[in-house]
Design a protein around this nucleic acid. Structure first.
Lengths: 199, 199
DNA sequence: CCTCCAAACTTGACAGTGTAAAGATAGTAA
DNA sequence: TTACTATCTTTACACTGTCAAGTTTGGAGG
């Protein structure tokens, strides 16, 4: 905070915060360890007391953003019981978060080594799939299809996010803000279908 | 090919080919202009006679891969009329291409500035959406829902690809090779539903 | 209070990167 | 042969991540 020479105080936290600032200002691609260090008013090798290297700093930033993201997702369905309407809220929150912070999307899903799927622990993915399973459980939907359905649905959300987040034209952003809820609330894709009699 | 000193012959093509080789060997992240130049047996500044800079070289590599990808997609539905079965083939081809070449996925969808959506021209996206519109046209599906349905479906495919391509565990790859056709052939998500009476 | 240590930070160096400028080479057209 | 021009080399610079060695400083133990 103040201008002590040595012993910044909490350089680790400062690096993460300044890192996020720089991502918002100059984009995810232009981020470098040295720039973050400079933004913290510290020499280029100082971060090595707190991070093993660039990768570890970036992972820390990644976790920071992911936590924000996860809390936004949770907020979007607090109070609501697991329901199709809740799922629309959840899906919209997912897409809109990255639509409004495309730098974060690039940074997380491009830099990162995140592995989705069964074994891996990626909170937003797990939260989404859990919520959907919960919803499907309330309907009499064949249990053996829960996971597949949830994965397919999450994939759609994530794919929409990919398209939306790559557009940085402000007009297109507005278009997506309309289109996403529209698509998600169309029950022919959102809900498990009554003719799901296959298998 | 041979070891002429000056005048490589076709350095531009060689850079693209060697670039792809290096991506396959060392991953998309480790690719650099200088390494490609070295792999071509040429000085590090030689490429500047053929490319304005790194970005232009990478874009050329990107286009090369995208063309391969597009032709794989086309092959997967040649001879077949636009149909749900054809759509399964197309979707599987989409996911499996990147599942087996995850480096390409990282390189294209991470490095690139591709913009999907209406205005942009990204051949695989357009091809996919066109095919789906064609299919929906054969069924008596409300025309005003074509685009939305196609986008939603493509998003699912692309999202599945994202998950699948991030997994480099060989066991997981086999799992996805089973799971993808399974998910895609489940008509509750793949086909437009008969209770699509919304709007 | 003093001492001293370990954590935090700086400085300097190195290899690697992209890029630009200036010079060398060689194929080609006159 | 001569001259031109595209192609390639050489050299240089700024920037990157990382390491090693030195410097500062807060705080614990005497």
């Amino acid at each position: 905070m103040d201008d002590k020479t040595y012993h910044h105080g909490d350089l680790r936290a400062a690096m993460i915060e300044k890192g996020i600032e720089l991502i918002n200002e100059n984009g995810a691609k232009a981020l470098s360890l040295r720039k973050v260090a400079a933004a913290c008013g510290v020499s280029h090798a100082a971060p090595y007391s707190h991070f093993a290297g660039k990768e570890e700093l970036f992972t820390a930033i990644e976790n920071y953003i992911t936590n924000k993201f996860a809390s936004v997702l949770k907020e979007s369905v607090t109070g609501k019981d697991a329901s199709p309407e809740g799922l629309v809220s959840l899906g919209c929150a997912y897409v809109l978060f990255f639509l409004r912070n495309p730098q974060y999307f690039h940074f997380i899903f491009i830099h990162s080594n995140i592995v989705f799927g069964d074994g891996a622990e990626y909170e937003p993915f797990d939260f989404y799939v859990d919520y959907m399973k919960q919803m499907l459980g309330k309907m009499d939907y064949p249990k053996e299809l829960w996971l597949k359905t949830a994965i397919a649905h999450w994939a759609m959300i994530h794919g929409l996010t990919s398209i939306a987040a790559m557009d940085d034209d402000p007009k297109e952003i507005l278009l997506w803000e309309e289109r996403v809820p529209d698509i998600l609330s169309n029950n022919y894709l959102l809900l498990p279908m009554n003719n799901a009699d296959s298998k």
